[in-house]
Design a protein around this nucleic acid. Structure first.
Length: 569
RNA sequence: CGGGGCGUAGCGCAGCUUGGUAGCGCGCACGGUUCGGGACCGUGAAGUCGGAGGUUCAAAUCCUCUCGCCCCGACCA
């Protein structure tokens, strides 16, 4: 394609409100524009990248026997009511009414719709298994879109669904999805992890997330370098590093005027925060619960929710009413309310609030000076000990690029998606659900592969394979030779991608410096530079975007050489 | 939803404290000189100062309300 026929609005200056590198580069290099909070327009280059990713998705889905569908994004509320999600999902769902007043919603996902279809059409074990998928727009009224295309209110997703007669079948479909996801992300040039995850509102039993490490990530995972254990910190199990030494001395109150937070008291008493117990009052269902955790740890609310069900933090007034002490000076000793302590507090001697204003208590021995229930309610973090092998965990910021869920019968039972087995018995279909976000793949690829000059696309998803830069468009020979080379390469087959080469010819009559800057920004893997001086020697220059390595080649065999270099990089 | 910030030309910003002719850089158009890493000179077009109301002789500037965008948190199949 010729540059003058393409809309590539590059920006010399960065918009002021970007936070993520992928967002900055997508805007500056002319891939996307923002319409409103969480809504993005894909410009020609951006759309080409997404289509390249989608092509890989289709090839790999087709490769495991999945069949492509297209389902509506406008859904009747009734189906969502049948699974209870019309009621259980809150403001995140876009809701509307049609002209007759019927409740409708915009699809956040398609479990309901595909299961509705399966309930109508799949009747016999002989029709199972099936894998159905689509690449379709989803809409979610996100509380806080952020990071450019990383979290948006409207986004495209590849979602597939498996239908099986039994657990064994589900196990198999889960496995082949996992394997195909590994191939997909590898082909897209990403570094990624498959980690254990929390099934969340999808329900079901087992779930894994595919996570691409990047500083712009919203999630955090822990990784064991030794045994390979990886998990989202939301569910990760780990052992806290115990305090190396123990506080000495008997139980006694010390004056801590106006020092409330762990940081303040720890600074005031010149004692490490790991020798403190944070005491936090929560209101679960009807009952107040005092939650105890080491000063340098964070409570993990998802773990707690599993123990307590829904809960909220107590207000200042509630703390005063229930514990008879103001916030900042709460401690575990002497209260009759239900207590849950993190297991990392089982040994050692600690400092906590004295339950009177302006005082903390030293020398508290959990289990001896107060009674409590014990549980793992702590957020895993770097330097914790791996529960599987005892090695040290590290953590990384990641973005979720895909996930796989074993749904079981969570949707098939309420929507009555059943089949008759070989004994004539009616059974609910066993389901799985598998998602991938193409825009997040693109964003992660940029995050993982860029330099100060711009994007460096992995070959498989780059908007073009090769960019030709004729530097002087008023020189007849340059124009003639660049057009000829353009036609030749375009007519050759890219054996890696099994299709003709996609070539971008920068035929703009502008200064060379601008062409160089734009080419580096846009990030096409290989640049072919045709300058007058080199052409006088019948030479042209090849530049590898990733390494900035340049090489002069003879014009005679230019297209063969260029293709050979392309295949090498 | 809680906390904070910002809305002035396509982009980046100044002007607001202390009310009085709306500015700068980049970009854009035209002319000229340039032409291997975002050139230079000259000329020019382009702004409901986010919107509404109020105070005032006079509002980008002060007051009230409102909309939008961004950040932190809550939230997040």
């Amino acid at each position: 394609m010729k540059y003058t026929n393409l809309f590539i609005p590059t920006l010399r200056e960065a918009p002021s409100d970007v936070t993520a590198v992928c967002q900055l580069l997508m805007l500056r290099a002319g891939y996307v524009r923002q319409l409103a909070t969480g809504l993005y327009i894909y410009l020609p280059l951006g759309w080409r990248v997404l289509n390249n990713i989608n092509r890989i998705l289709k090839e790999e889905m087709d490769g495991i026997g999945a069949q492509e569908f297209s389902m509506p994004i406008l859904h009747p509320a009734e189906i969502w009511s049948q699974t209870g999600r019309w009621q259980s999902i809150g403001e995140e769902m876009f809701r509307l009414k049609d002209r007759y007043g019927r409740d409708m919603c915009l699809g956040m996902t398609h479990e309901e719709i595909i299961t509705w279809l399966a309930s109508k059409e799949l009747k016999s074990y002989k029709e199972l298994p099936q894998i159905w998928y689509q690449i379709q727009t989803k809409l979610r009224d996100e509380a806080r879109p952020r990071g450019g295309v990383l979290r948006t209110r409207e986004f495209i997703m590849k979602d597939s669904y498996s239908f099986d007669a039994d657990e064994k079948g589900l196990e198999h479909n889960y496995k082949i999805h996992s394997e195909s996801y590994h191939r997909i992300f590898k082909r897209c040039g990403l570094t990624f992890y498959e980690v254990e995850s929390d099934p969340g509102m999808m329900g079901g039993s087992t779930a894994h997330e595919f996570m691409a490490p990047t500083p712009a990530g919203e999630d955090e995972i822990v990784i064991c370098g030794k045994c390979g254990y990886t998990a989202n910190v939301e569910i990760a199990e780990s052992i806290a590093v115990p305090n190396a030494d123990t506080l000495q001395g008997q139980i006694e109150d010390v004056e801590t005027p106006n020092k409330r937070t762990v940081a303040e008291v720890s600074g005031f008493l010149k004692t490490k925060s790991s020798f403190f117990i944070k005491s936090i009052l929560l209101i679960a269902k009807s009952e107040p619960v005092l939650v105890l955790i080491r000063g340098d740890h964070e409570i993990h609310e998802k773990k707690l929710t599993k123990l307590l069900g829904e809960f909220r933090h107590a207000s200042k007034d509630e703390v005063l009413n229930i514990l008879k002490v103001e916030t900042g000076f709460i401690g575990p000793v002497g209260h009759k309310v239900k207590k849950i302590a993190d297991i990392s507090l089982r040994s050692g001697t600690y400092i906590s609030g004295a339950n009177k204003s302006g005082y903390h208590t030293k020398g508290i021995r959990p289990g001896m000076d107060f009674d409590t229930e014990w549980a793992d309610i702590r957020m895993a973090k770097a330097d914790d000990t791996c529960v599987k092998c005892g090695s040290v965990l590290r953590s990384e910021k990641v973005i979720e690029i895909g996930n796989i869920f074993k749904l079981g019968t969570k949707y098939s039972v309420p929507l009555n998606a059943t089949f008759l087995d070989s004994n004539g018995q009616e059974n609910p279909i066993i389901m799985g659900s598998y998602g991938i976000g193409p825009a997040r793949i693109a964003a992660a690829a940029i995050e993982q592969s860029n330099d100060k000059d711009g994007i460096i696309w992995p070959k498989n998803i780059a908007p073009f394979d090769i960019q030709i830069l004729p530097l002087n468009m008023v020189d007849a020979r340059t124009v003639e030779l660049s057009n000829a080379l353009y036609d030749t390469i375009k007519g050759s087959i890219n054996s890696l991608l099994k299709r003709p080469f996609e070539v971008l010819l920068d035929d703009r009559d502008i200064r060379p410096g601008v062409k160089f800057k734009d080419a580096d920004l846009i990030g096409i893997p290989l640049q072919v530079i045709m300058g007058e001086k080199n052409l006088k020697n019948d030479e042209i220059e090849i530049k590898v975007r990733r390494t900035s390595e340049t090489r002069k080649i003879s014009i005679d065999r230019a297209s063969e050489e260029i293709i050979a270099i392309y295949n090498e990089i």
